[in-house]
């Protein structure tokens, strides 16, 4: 696991009887180049990952130094029987279900439209991508105001067309869809850019040739665009699912996980257990369980990509 395995004396593996002359090895300079990154990587990623795993087997506490008493799988057993763990995991999954389809489909459709338009592309990029670059805190301030009962723009706009608004963020059933809507507005631009880039890789001649053959725009989209964007869609989908699973900011800022914990995400549960209840060992165990979920999603992605590459 460590970079020290790259010894200065390392020589390239020489295949006996190989016709190629032995090429010089650069083990010593390589260590120098890798060292700054390696030190930070070990100190702040690998180290904490190992420490977090160890900690999850102990009753570590924020108010005590050291690991505390050994708990074995106690933290894990407790988490799996903890209804708050399961409900925050479900909230996270529910948020992912609510955000992923619109963030993929809408981004795809808008990118598709933008790709056919030659004028003012910078304007569309600005409109869709500008929100993505804002801090979550700015987004939250704006959208809390948008959702405010009686004074909010959304309620006013819906009232004009005769729809009575629910108490968006205040209603346990509507709070999560409200957060999802805000998130779609906030992060759509990222997927939009990925799709635009994917669309630009499609050779224009394909469209021109098919147009000469009499293909309608709709046929072009179905027979050329969608199949050729398969890889981009896989990428967008996985990045999106992982990003949605890691949700924390929107809930923390806009609903504090409420009303009545209806929007508490798994990361906020880690935060609450670790830093409000001081139960670091338990929080570390929940983090590990969450990591397993993310890992599973990544594994599915890898298998999808491999299958796609085999098909090509």
């Amino acid at each position: 696991m460590s970079i020290e395995t790259v010894t200065p004396r390392a020589r390239p593996a020489e295949v006996p009887g190989s016709p190629a002359p032995a090429r010089p090895s650069h083990g010593r300079p390589a260590i120098g180049f890798l060292l700054p990154f390696a030190v930070l990587y070990l100190a702040f990623i690998i180290g904490p990952a190992v420490y977090g795993l160890v900690m999850s087997f102990f009753d570590a506490s924020l108010v005590r130094s050291g690991l505390g008493s050994f708990a074995g799988f106690g933290n894990y057993a407790e988490a799996l029987q903890d209804p708050d763990f399961w409900s925050s995991l479900w909230h996270t999954v529910w948020f992912t279900i609510l955000t992923t389809p619109p963030l993929i489909v809408l981004a795809f459709v808008l990118a598709l439209l933008a790709d056919r338009v030659n004028r003012g592309r910078w304007f569309f990029r600005l409109a869709f991508f500008a929100p993505f670059i804002l801090p979550s805190a700015v987004v939250a301030l704006i959208w809390i105001f948008m959702y405010t009962p009686e004074l909010g723009l959304i309620e006013a706009a819906l009232a004009k067309i005769g729809i009575t608004s629910p108490a968006w963020l205040g209603d346990p059933n509507w709070a999560m869809p409200s957060l999802a809507l805000t998130t779609v507005w906030w992060t759509l631009g990222f997927n939009f850019i990925l799709y635009l880039a994917g669309l630009q890789e499609i050779p224009r001649e394909l469209y021109e040739a098919s147009a000469i053959d009499g293909a309608s725009p709709w046929q072009q989209i179905r027979r050329i665009t969608i199949p050729m964007l398969g890889r981009t869609t896989t990428l967008v989908a996985v990045l999106q699912v992982i990003a949605s699973l890691k949700v924390f900011d929107q809930m923390y800022l806009m609903t504090s996980g409420g009303p009545n914990f209806a929007t508490r995400s798994i990361l906020q549960y880690v935060y609450d257990q670790g830093f409000t209840n001081f139960r670091l060992g338990y929080a570390a165990a929940i983090s590990m369980l969450f990591f397993l979920v993310v890992l599973a999603v990544s594994a599915v992605w890898f298998s999808l990509v491999r299958r796609q590459e085999k098909e090509v």
Binding site: M1, I3, T5, V6, L34, F37, Y41, A43, F44, I45, I46, G47, P48, A49, Y51, G52, M55, A60, I242, K246, F248, L267, V270, Y271, G274, F275, L280, A283, A284, S287, M288, F290, F291, V294, L295, S298
Partner: peptide, 24 residues
């Protein structure tokens, strides 16, 4: 091997490390 070890880091979301990193 070094390259793969580094790439594997992409799989670890920073958020799952907040507890041990805070302790550190």
């Amino acid at each position: 091997l070094v390259f793969w070890i580094i790439l594997a880091g992409i799989m670890i979301p920073g958020q799952v490390l907040i507890v041990p990193q805070f302790r550190e």
